[in-house]
Structure formats: structure tokens, C-alpha cells
Amino acid sequence: MTVYYTKDHEWLRVEGDVAVVGITNHAAEELGELVFVEAKDAGTEVAQGDSVAVVESVKAASDIYAPVSGEVVGFNTALADDPSLVNREAEAEGWILKMRIADAGQLASLLDADAYAALIG
């Protein structure tokens, strides 16, 4: 299983032709306790860099951008009742959505774990 990262603090795990997408531990810590998480409806086609979900803290809403182009195929329904699961397990059980990857070639434009670690210092 390969995990990729973006400069906007999303992570993406490839499972066949599906990408599991979430926000990084670093992002979750910066945002503070989340009170609401919502993704685009299943079936929605998004281009790389489009807003594909929103995470909200007490204070503010933040967009989550699609790390690659594709079709939304699932949402982590556990977050509907317990959005702070993202704060506790951002890079595991707190995943946000699944996308069917339209163009696997876009994965090459993402960061690996070392590059992301260097980015956040």
C-alpha cells in the first residue's frame, strides 16, 4: 500500500483503482477539534485540486481538495456522528472519502512521506 501526500495536507492511500483520502495528523492538529465533516456526494466527478470535502472546526470551515481527479465513491459515515474521529486518527480510521482514480499518472505529482515531512518541518 502506497500513501501519498499533498502540499494542502491531504493524504491518499491507493487500494487498487480506489484512493482513500483524508487529512494529515498535522492538519488535524492545526484545525483543532472538528465538529462537522462532509464530502461531495458519491457519483460526483472532481478534477485534481477541486474542493471534494469540507471539514469544520468551531471557528472555521476548510476545504479538502481532491489529490487526484476521479469520481467520489464513498464517505466515511462514522464521521457523521463523530467528526472528531479525524482528530484522534486522522491517517487511519478518520479517513474522509474514497475516490475512483481517473488517471493514475497524477499520483506522480504527489509527495511521498519524506517529502511531506520535510514540508511541515
Binding site: G32, E33, V35, S57, V58, K59
Partner: peptide, 9 residues
Amino acid sequence: VQYRAGVMA
């Protein structure tokens, strides 16, 4: 804007 405890706490 907040301390270590966070806005909610």
C-alpha cells in the same frame, strides 16, 4: 486565538 487546550475545551 487559542492555547494548547483548543477552542472547544
